[in-house]
Amino acid sequence: MADGAGRYRAGETALIVKVPEAEPVVGGWRERFDPSAEAGVPAHVSVLYPFLNQDHIGDQVLGAVAELFGSHGAFDLRFATCGRFPGVLYLAPEPDDQFRALTLAVAARWPEAPPYGGRFAEVIPHLTVADGQEPSVLDTVEADLARRLPVATHVSSVQLLVFDGIVWREQADFALRAPRISVPRRDGQR
C-alpha cells in the first residue's frame, strides 16, 4: 500500500466536512485502501483541497473563512449510493448541491486555490472509501457497503486540516449558519 503521508507536503491544508457517522461503515475499508486515512484524515467530504499553504493562513484569512462559511446554512444529507472514479470508490452525498456551493464560494474567494489544483473540470463531492485499487477490490468493497448504507449526517461546520509532514491535524472549525426555526407567536401568527 502506498504511504499516505508521502502524497502530501508539509504545510498543505484542506477544508473538509468530517462525517463521523460513516466511520463504522467505511473505517475498516479506508484503513486498508485509502492512503489519506493512513495520514490521519477521518471519513470526510472535501470542500477544497488543497487550500492555501499554512504560512499564508493568518488571522485575517481565518476570519474571512469563518465569515464565508457562516453565511452558508447547516444542512442534512445522506450517503445511500456508491460512485466511482478510475481506481476510486466513494460514497455519494445526497443532495450534493450544498457542498458544491461551499466549494464554489471558497474557490471564488481564493482563486489561487482551485479545487484539486485545477486538475478536474467538474468537482464531484464524495467521501472516498478506496483509492488506487483494482476494479475487483472496488467490487468487493462496494458489495459490502451496499448492505450497510444509508448513512445520514447533519453538517454544521467545516474543518481546516494542516499536514505537518507526518499526519493531518485539525487547526480550526468553522460553523455554518444554524437553520432558522420559525416559532409561532402566541396569537397564532408567524
Rank of each mutant, 00 (worst) to 15 (best):
M1F: 09
A2Q: 02
A5G: 00
G6C: 07
R7S: 02
R9Q: 09
G11Y: 01
T13S: 12
A14I: 12
L15R: 13
K18E: 12
P20S: 04
E21C: 07
P24K: 00
V25S: 00
W29T: 09
W29E: 11
R32P: 03
R32Q: 14
F33E: 11
D34H: 05
S36C: 11
E38T: 08
E38G: 14
V45A: 01
S46I: 07
L48Y: 14
P50R: 14
F51N: 03
D55Y: 00
A64Q: 14
A66V: 10
E67R: 14
F69K: 07
A74V: 04
F75Y: 11
L77K: 00
R78D: 07
F79I: 01
C82D: 08
R84K: 14
F85A: 11
G87Y: 15
V106W: 09
A108I: 04
E112I: 13
G117A: 08
R119H: 15
A121L: 06
E122S: 01
P125R: 02
V129P: 03
A130I: 12
G132A: 09
E134T: 13
V137K: 00
D139R: 03
D139Q: 10
E142K: 06
A143F: 09
D144C: 08
L145H: 02
R148I: 11
L149T: 04
P150R: 00
P150N: 04
A152K: 08
A152W: 04
T153W: 00
H154T: 04
V155Q: 08
V155L: 03
S156F: 00
S157T: 14
Q159N: 06
Q159D: 15
L160S: 14
F163K: 02
F163L: 02
G165R: 04
R169L: 08
A172N: 13
A175D: 13
R177M: 13
A178M: 00
A178R: 05
A178N: 01
I181Q: 04
R186G: 15
G188Y: 02
Q189K: 06
